[in-house]
């Protein structure tokens, strides 16, 4: 399954050829196949890794942390204790972030509903602005 060229990855994930080569150089991507003429081809598993990298980067994980986590993903049973600790720490960070996001989503949902439910502008925004003035 899967035999994607650099251009395919670019279209699918928005990553440049330089980025993919860099990931390979620093060991984020390993064992990238090549055709007889030396052209890199990426498997579904490589794409899965790249998606993981993109998600982790959005959460501000460093490339070094992502590399460790990818190694753990490959062989969870034999992960080093530092990498296990890292995964626990990152999980805690994500849980906190999720709670923050959930609260923010709920706050925005309330704001949106209050604003759309009123014929007289947005009373809650005006109310908050007033309270900041005092």
């Amino acid at each position: 399954m899967g035999d994607y060229r650099i251009g395919d990855i670019g279209k699918q994930l928005g990553l440049t050829a330089d980025t993919l080569r860099y990931y390979e150089k620093i060991g984020l991507l390993k064992n990238i196949s090549r055709t007889a003429s030396g052209i890199r081809t990426y498997s579904d598993k490589d794409i899965s890794h790249l998606k993981f990298i993109q998600r982790a980067q959005k959460m501000n994980f460093s490339l070094a942390e992502i590399k460790d986590l990818l190694q753990m993903r490959e062989d969870p049973q034999h992960a080093r204790s530092e990498v296990r600790a890292l995964s626990h720490r990152k999980l805690a960070e994500i849980e906190t972030h999720l709670q923050d996001l959930t609260t923010l989503r709920n706050e925005l949902a309330l704001l949106v509903n209050l604003c759309t439910g009123s014929e007289d502008g947005c009373p809650i925004i005006e109310g908050i602005e007033e309270s900041h003035k005092t």
């Binding site: 706050e107 309330l110 439910g117």
Partner: peptide, 18 residues
Amino acid sequence: VDVVDEFDYAVALGIRAT
């Protein structure tokens, strides 16, 4: 409860509209 005055409390309770 005026949601403007007690916004955090309203959100925590699950208020999404009035």
